[in-house]
């Protein structure tokens, strides 16, 4: 929009670079620290480059017992939660924006209030409920729990995006003879894609990062998820700082990859061309 004004463009780019530098700095420092040999972490003059470089921290982190089990569990749980929550939230948001029915506003307010409950408070009641449902120590229990945690937000976000799509577009497509399914796939989905992506990244991060529910609800060690592995770097007798930081770097990697992959679709989905069908 401001493409013609050159000084504004320079200022904008400078600002963006500055922002990136500040926001990236902690992440850069994390990777930098992870690559340093243990002896280099306590230096009063910080070392900005990790030379001599050492991959020992990463090797130690991956060699921890059960790493592979936890990784598999995390991938399963996160994958199912993201898919499930996006589908379920999309259906619910469609109902909430395309229909008028009794209980609609109540439902919306209800799921907003759910988000206000302080986290620690729900742990014990939820544990008791899972116990009664015989879902303790199962990945399904964990999946259902995380889905319920992310649904309020994903429904609200998708509702916001569905509101932005004019019903006329769908109606026009229907008039053109498209089936309802085609309308959803060809018209609605591309337009709501940015919202779906925002919601799925959020779901991914919640399911991928949770420690306490995974720790409390799973009993057999082989069913824990990766955050439990991350916790294993701190014990009562000391914290393996290098290992923890290297572990965190590895841990964050899939989220970045996941988003950068779907982020391309975000760009495709939102070009004005899609609106014009």
């Amino acid at each position: 929009m401001v493409r013609r004004v050159r000084p504004a463009r320079v200022a904008l780019n400078t600002g963006a670079v500055l922002f990136c530098a500040v926001w990236m700095f902690p992440v850069y420092w994390m990777v930098n620290t992870a690559l340093k040999p243990t002896g280099d972490t306590l230096s009063p003059t910080p070392k900005f480059l990790p030379f001599p470089m050492s991959l020992a921290n990463f090797a130690d982190a991956v060699r921890k017992p059960h790493f592979a089990d936890y990784l598999v569990n995390s991938v399963i749980v996160t994958g199912v939660v993201v898919t499930l929550s996006v589908v379920v939230a999309f259906l619910a948001a469609t109902a909430l924006t395309r229909f008028r029915f009794f209980g609609r506003r109540g439902f919306l307010i209800g799921i907003m209030v759910i988000q206000m409950i302080p986290g620690p408070a729900l742990l014990i009641p939820l544990f008791l409920s899972m116990k009664s449902l015989n879902m303790l120590d199962t990945l399904i229990g964990l999946i259902v729990t995380y889905s319920a945690f992310v649904l309020p937000l994903t429904i609200w976000v998708m509702r916001g995006f569905l509101h932005g799509v004019p019903v006329e577009l769908e109606e026009a497509a229907m008039v053109d003879g498209a089936s309802r399914f085609t309308v959803i796939r060809k018209v609605l989905l591309p337009l709501v894609m940015p919202g779906i992506i925002a919601a799925s990244v959020f779901s991914f991060i919640v399911a991928w990062n949770d420690y306490i529910y995974a720790y409390v609800m799973m009993k057999d060690q082989s069913r824990y998820t990766l955050p439990v592995w991350l916790a294993s770097f701190s014990t009562n007798i000391g914290t393996d700082y290098g290992g923890l930081i290297a572990g965190s770097t590895l841990f964050a990697l899939p989220i970045v990859v996941f988003f950068m992959l779907i982020q391309r679709r975000l760009v495709v989905g939102m070009t004005a061309g899609a609106v014009k069908g």
Partner: peptide
């Protein structure tokens, strides 16, 4: 680039981010 920075910051798990901050 901006998206990448945002996502990288968002991706750092809570416990690690807090640890990173103390550091």
């Amino acid at each position: 680039l901006v998206t990448f920075c945002l996502i990288a910051a968002w991706a750092v798990p809570n416990v690690a981010a807090t640890m990173l901050w103390t550091w």
